[in-house]
């Protein structure tokens, strides 16, 4: 049996018994019986805009695992400086050059949770989100909370933002696109409309 598969089997057993899983902080599920693709889930950390949300992750295990890092992507849409609001691609050093062979699925999921709690806007994946994070922290908090509510099942509904999205969908724009355009333009309806039309 290849070392990657053998290790994922062991890790899988480790992670589903871990304390974090018991407290519903993280979760992993198998997608197939080859152990090279998994579904992860992390809970939004408390006292952040992501609190109350459940974020789904796509985890792909390369054949060279654990000598190379797993490929991880957010499936659930999220508004965060280090995660692409469009593709869910993650900018996190341990998933790139700072990977170490002793890291596990559990430590990766916990690191991602830590990333949600402490963004690094100076090393962004999504430049638009990072700029908003640095220049308009209040708007960022509101937008991230709204995205958590809409995509990750978070509890905080924002009627004013929903109204603006509906305004654009009534004009014939697709809902997700409208939300991205509004979020990227600090919820300025006129600017977002111009952007969508250009």
């Amino acid at each position: 049996m290849a070392i990657a598969e053998q290790r994922i089997r062991r890790e899988f057993r480790e992670v589903i018994r871990s304390e974090e899983v018991e407290r519903c902080r993280i979760k992993v599920e198998l997608v197939n019986d080859k152990f090279n693709e998994l579904k992860g889930e992390i809970a939004g950390p408390p006292e952040t805009p992501y609190e109350g949300g459940k974020f789904q992750l796509e985890i792909k295990i390369p054949e060279t695992y654990p000598f190379n890092p797993p490929k991880v992507r957010f499936v659930t849409r999220i508004w965060h400086p280090n995660i692409s609001s469009v593709t869910g691609a993650i900018c996190l050093d341990i998933l790139k050059d700072q990977w170490a062979a002793a890291m596990t699925l559990r430590t990766v999921l916990l690191s991602l949770q830590a990333l949600l709690a402490a963004a690094e806007p100076d090393d962004p994946q999504d430049a638009v989100v990072a700029r908003q994070y640095k220049e308009r922290q209040d708007v960022f908090q509101k937008t991230a909370t709204h995205w958590t509510n809409v995509y990750a099942g978070g509890p905080n509904h924002a009627d004013d933002l929903e109204d603006k999205v509906r305004q654009l969908t009534n004009m014939g724009f697709e809902e997700d696109q409208a939300r991205v355009a509004l979020s990227s333009h600090n919820w300025d309806t006129a600017q977002a409309t111009d952007f969508l039309l250009s």
Partner: peptide
């Protein structure tokens, strides 16, 4: 409820 799902997969193993 999510925890329930998690522990059932644990039982599966």
């Amino acid at each position: 409820s999510e925890c329930g799902a998690g522990s059932s997969s644990k039982d599966g193993q």
